[in-house]
Amino acid sequence: MYEKHVRKKTATTPRKVVVAAFCACFLPGCISVYHYQPLQGLHRSYALSYKEANFAGLTLNLSCIANTFVSESAAGVLCDKLRTVFEGQGAKVLDAESGDAAFDYGLEFEATQTYHHQNAWMWPVSILLFTLFPVEQEYAFKQTVTLTRGSDGSPLRRESFEARFLWFWGAGYWGLNKLFNVTVRNDSEKVDDASMRRDFSRDFYSQVSQLVYNARTRDAFRNAKVEAQ
């Protein structure tokens, strides 16, 4: 009786675990890998760190535009993150309660999707092959940043930054990537969701900060020239 009970447990527990793990892995995000590739503008070098106090005494007005690609809430999230980035560098960022307060520069952000690709046939094929064959999605978007002077609203600079993201889902690809992360890649080369977000944030926030910094130094130099004359 005792032997029979033990045999039954050993026979069913691994199967349950496998089934549970298999089901869990069908949840998107569990076995997915993101790759980020900087395209237009984002691979340029920058001379400052957005973690330093570059904008002490500067007042900015941020505006993130919602459209068919960016929902109202996503635009709000972007502006909140940018506010944190600029406030971290010493700038004062106006908010809804600031009313018509004066500001030095206005920054307007508008994103558009430039590419989207997904093969619907990959899902059933992947599931039939126990997700060894991955599902792949790709999209690219362009973030256009317009910098204006606060005093008169005149446009100073308009830059576009384009990024490409590849998303893979499946135990085969995820497992290989995990294996590479553990065995071959060093910390800066690791590919996972956190590093994708970190790399994109570093590139995007640095470029936007550099844009504002350049405008500020040009204006400061221009004012000093006027005083010197």
Partner: peptide, 30 residues
Amino acid sequence: TVLIPLLPFLLLFLFGRSGDPAPGLFTSKS
């Protein structure tokens, strides 16, 4: 053992992606 015959499908996919300039399994970020 059921999964081993399926590995060529993954290899086929990886071969198809080998020329992609994006960082990936065989292209480092640097």
